[in-house]
Amino acid sequence: MTNSQLIASTAPRVQARTLTEQEVHDIEHELTLYPDKRAVGLEALKIVQKHQGWVSDESLLAVANFLEMSAHELDGVATFFNLIFRQPVGRKVMLFCNSVSCYIMGCEQIKAHISERLGIDYGETTADGQFTLIPVPCLGDCDRAPVMLMDGEQQRNLSIEKINEILAESAERE
């Protein structure tokens, strides 16, 4: 391999994007809370995700540059955590609890219903970009199982009817 071939085959494909003012502001606030820049990595990724919906490679690089840390190391953190999305997600993310109490209370039937209604399985997004379905570990609401967290709201005592209501409501609001 010559130098130029090598450059062609392994040149970086993505460039960092520019963080928005709001993102920078939020990250800078976090920086005041920790004695070490790198401790803010996860927070910063969450901030970016809050504003962008997910963490693209461009965002990852931007955060790494901002915190003066290795993008590779940061990606190691990003890919470790369940709630950092390294792929685009829908406008509404259904964090669906599939842990034991919800299982006992029949969450699998409800998941099957969602999948049928929306045509998506875990980890998938509807074609219209509206919903993404993601399983999460126990949401700590086991006395009101089955539950899911969507749009910042905990939906409890889920039933097929309730799911239909929720979907109908979302459709209305669109």
């Binding site: 809370l33 070490d36 401790a39 996860l42 990724l45 969450k46 953190v77 955590f81 570990p137």
Partner: peptide, 27 residues
């Protein structure tokens, strides 16, 4: 008192994994 919110990994409850997570490392 500083409130730190995590990003969803059960292992973070293990107290030393939690410390790594707080330091911004893999938990």
């Amino acid at each position: 008192i500083i409130l730190h919110t995590s990003a969803g990994r059960y292992i973070c409850g293990e107290e030393t994994a939690l410390l790594n997570a707080l330091e911004g490392k893999r938990a």
